[in-house]
Nucleic acid binder design. Structure first.
Length: 303
DNA sequence: ATCCAGGATATCT
DNA sequence: AGATATCATGGA
């Protein structure tokens, strides 16, 4: 199947959007990006304001627009955030980065696996999990794997899950299995979570108690549960906020952050709430721009 | 060899 | 509450 989407000029940079580290299972081969949307293999490439998409099976155009969040008016969102002149200089160096509307189950698993890992390693883990537990899809000369269904992880042995290269071995495999079980039992219903407020949903995510802390919860909220006011803070975002907005945070805070390797719960809260207060309902977009910008500064995007 | 990466959690004081 | 130890991969 063949689809061509007409994007407003400057409102999509596909390379940046797929490579910036919000999502982990797209790979670029030649001019084309390959990935999976559900059980459909998708390849796409951008030619200026046109997005050329080919799929292994029928897929609705609206599904694609939904995934790319084309309902977000990027110009208006970034324009609004750029009333802050510090952010404006960041946005001038990162154009066409869009948040994606990810599948919540895949997003939750992805970020549980992400802790203390580099992006390349997260991709490797998720591809291993998919290859081992996901459905194989063959399309012309390409082979890819669906993301594992919750049921597949429910039934798996811990050692099998851990063998996919998880950073924390069987302990993390256990976390994934427990989360999968909650989804299978219906104790986690993403459609309900999607409709609740940020703080209600976050409280529930944190109550799972299986590898979901502040950072993982905020990523899932932002990238898959429609909470654009979420402001996840990792090492990079922490650095960016301290560097650019340190004057708002106080010198004793800056000194404390400087000395510690990992963010304490308290300092996570201070940074994340600063982001939410300062940037408002599109704080999540601001966060992603800051994240990508500071990684560009440090030449970390190709790692 | 040492350091670091989209951290969470149990166990101290 | 807040600091600390543990979990234990793989690339630079």
């Amino acid at each position: 199947m063949n689809i061509v989407l007409d994007i407003s000029p400057g409102h999509l940079d596909l390379d940046t959007t797929l490579r910036c580290g919000q999502v982990f299972r797209w790979t670029r081969l030649g001019d084309w990006w390959f990935g999976m949307l559900g059980d459909v293999m998708v390849k796409m490439r951008q030619e200026k304001q046109f997005l050329n998409v080919k799929t292994s099976a029928a897929i609705s155009e609206s599904k694609l627009e939904d995934y790319l969040r084309l309902d977000d008016d990027l110009g208006a969102i970034i324009g609004g955030l750029s009333k802050d002149r510090i952010f404006r200089s960041v946005a001038n160096q990162v154009s066409g980065l869009r948040l994606l509307r990810q599948d919540p189950w895949e997003c939750l698993v992805s970020y549980i696996c992400s802790r203390n890992c580099k992006i390349a390693m997260i991709s490797r883990i998720l591809n291993n999990l998919s290859q081992k537990f996901g459905k194989k899809v063959v399309w012309k000369r390409s082979v890819n794997y669906c993301f594992p269904e919750p049921n597949a992880l429910c039934q798996a042995e811990l050692s099998e899950i851990a063998s996919c290269g998880l950073r924390y071995g069987k302990r993390q495999a256990y976390e994934l299995k427990q989360i999968a079980k909650l989804v299978c039992e219906g104790a986690i219903d993403f459609e309900i979570l999607r409709r609740m407020t940020y703080s209600e949903t976050k409280k529930i995510l944190l109550s799972f108690d299986h590898g979901v802390g502040n950072k993982v919860a905020d990523c899932v909220l932002l990238f898959s549960l429609e909470k654009l006011e979420a402001f996840p803070v990792d090492v990079w975002v922490g650095r960016a906020v301290v560097q650019l907005y340190g004057k708002f945070l106080g010198s004793e805070f800056i000194q404390r952050i400087d000395r510690t390797r990992h963010l304490s719960a308290r300092d996570y809260g201070i940074l994340s709430e600063f982001g939410q207060m300062h940037f408002g309902r599109y704080a999540g977009y601001a966060q992603e721009y800051l994240y990508h910008w500071t990684r560009l500064q440090h030449n970390a995007c190709d790692q």
